[in-house]
């Protein structure tokens, strides 16, 4: 049975007085890959960031409506944002490893969460690196600086770092847009594997990437959710003309 992991209802987001998201209602299923597509400035990244309250860091942001994860409205006053971000991890366009060793990059999060036992940390690091499909490439040099890894490896390391704190949802904001085709393909394979354990939401400008890896696709335009359906339907027979025009490259 498909369970909705994320559920927004009549959600509006304003940057001061400017409306950036207009009445978004969407149900994102658990342990599936959901892709957000749309031209620059359409609100897809803003919406992604609102799913773990990253927009809280920006002055003047105001959110109305419900943003539910499981049964909890994450904008309720008593929500612990640190815990929320542990549950809802995020990977960015540009890989951002800490200037530390590969091991320390992964162990950092669990340590902050109070895990100091060496054996336990070893196990967490190994599992996270294995789940991010980079273990074989780095297992013999865990003490080396993470900055010495290639761009693609750094990105998988960042995914491993996100997985190390045991999230339920992983948000990805164009995670492969700065990578070469081979590294992109590794990230894409990884995303498909990760959905067995995690709910993945990905923003991408690469339409073929959305088509290849996602189960559902949402098309955003001018702050509105124009169409949301199975990826197969969006890419073979979309319902709305705007979606059709965008994915076939007729506008945007």
């Amino acid at each position: 049975m498909i369970v909705d992991k994320i559920h927004t209802e009549n959600m509006f987001l304003y940057y001061s007085t400017k409306m950036a998201l207009n009445n978004i209602s969407i149900k994102i299923p658990e342990k599936k890959v959901t892709a957000f597509i749309g031209p620059s400035g359409c609100g897809k990244s803003t919406f992604l960031r609102s799913l773990n309250r990253m927009n809280d860091l920006i002055d003047g942001v105001k959110i109305e409506g419900k943003v539910m994860i499981d049964t909890i409205n994450i904008y309720d006053k008593n929500i612990d944002v640190v815990n929320l971000r542990k549950k809802v991890g995020m990977v960015f366009q540009k890989s951002n490893p800490f200037a530390k060793s590969i091991f320390e990059n992964i162990a950092y999060g669990p340590r902050i969460n109070g895990i100091n036992d060496k054996n336990q940390l070893d196990e967490i690091v190994e599992t996270a690196l294995k789940n991010a499909a980079i273990w074989d490439e780095v297992k013999d040099r865990l003490g080396d600086s993470a900055l010495g890894l290639s761009g693609g490896q750094q990105q998988r390391l960042c995914i491993a770092r996100t997985l190390a704190v045991n999230p339920e949802i992983v948000l990805m904001d164009e995670p492969a847009s700065a990578l070469d085709p081979l590294s992109t393909s590794k990230i894409e394979e990884l995303i498909v594997q990760l959905k067995e354990q995690y709910t993945i939401v990905i923003v991408t400008h690469n339409m073929q990437q959305a088509a290849r890896i996602s189960d559902h696709t949402a098309f955003f335009y001018l702050g509105e959710l124009i169409e949301y359906d199975k990826t197969r339907t969006i890419f073979t027979n979309p319902n709305k003309k705007q979606t059709e025009d965008y994915i076939t490259g007729r506008f945007g």
Partner: peptide, 9 residues
């Protein structure tokens, strides 16, 4: 061209 939607059809 990797056609999609009506182009693909």
């Amino acid at each position: 061209q990797q056609p999609v939607a009506s182009d693909l059809r």
